[in-house]
Design a protein around this nucleic acid. Structure first.
Lengths: 143, 143
DNA sequence: TATTGTTATACTCTATAACTATA
DNA sequence: TATAGTTATAGAGTATAACAATA
């Protein structure tokens, strides 16, 4: 039978809650980055998903994005019209269309990522010592 | 003339980038929390914005949500139909409708917040000592 | 006259179902 | 016959413009 996960140690709960608050309060900056470029959240997600060298079938993208393939067609079409993605037929199976990021798409993705990575003022206000400690610990995450 | 902000110390950039990655990789959990309850992202934003005791005019909400008042009307109407919000006329200015969170709305907001606050596995995997250090430093943010 | 919220309308995004072309 | 992607269609969410009630 499905069971709930045991409660985390209080240290984990406290640390995560604080991280979460900071991350949420910086959400409007990310929204602004998109609005400034006339990009939708869908566009952004696609820019993060797609790759310049590895093309991906529409069906794969639909599954990853949790949407219907017909909608993935729409989203990719929008991106293609903006010049940020391109379609190419698969060599072995001509039913499949592979979707690639264009150079222009990679450029805007990089710009976006750079803006997302700019630390908010409230983080910059910490001491360099605290920031270094933070980075040292967080570097262990997912390792 | 408008100028770009000076670059942050490398410690800030590193710490923030790592925090940001964790936030992004935990986004699907929050999406799942909403889907499980049949809530839209709009619903969630409204649940965070509204209050049981302090009613807010539609126009205020529209400004905070960055949308048109006609859309705020739509969003609040949806929430009202779900029983999570209620409208009441302002006593002094009968043009104004104040929007309040209902008890039921507060309950689902609290559930949601509790789920959001459950630390992801990759955070729980850190040592209690590291987590305590993390919490100690992050508690200074925004102070 | 000006302001608040709603309604009328049109446009975008989304899913379902039907279709085309390959396999 | 089955599968990948598209197109046709309809429903949800959004903004603009017109409107009603109140100030």
């Amino acid at each position: 039978m499905p069971r709930k996960k045991s409660s985390p140690p209080p240290e984990a709960a406290a640390a995560w809650r604080l991280m979460f608050e900071v991350l949420m309060s910086s959400g409007h900056r990310r929204t602004a980055s998109l609005v400034r470029r006339g990009l939708t959240p869908n566009d952004a997600r696609a820019l993060w998903t797609l790759d310049v060298d590895d093309g991906r079938p529409i069906g794969d993208l639909a599954r990853e994005w949790g949407c219907d393939p017909s909608n993935a067609t729409f989203i990719v079409g929008r991106l293609e019209k903006s010049g940020f993605a391109r379609r190419a037929s698969h060599a072995d199976d001509k039913r499949v269309k592979l979707v690639f990021l264009t150079k222009s798409g990679a450029a805007v993705r990089d710009e976006l990522r750079d803006e997302y990575h700019e630390p908010p003022d409230e983080i910059r206000a910490l001491t360099r010592k605290d920031l270094a400690t933070l980075a040292r610990i967080l570097a262990k995450v997912g390792k």
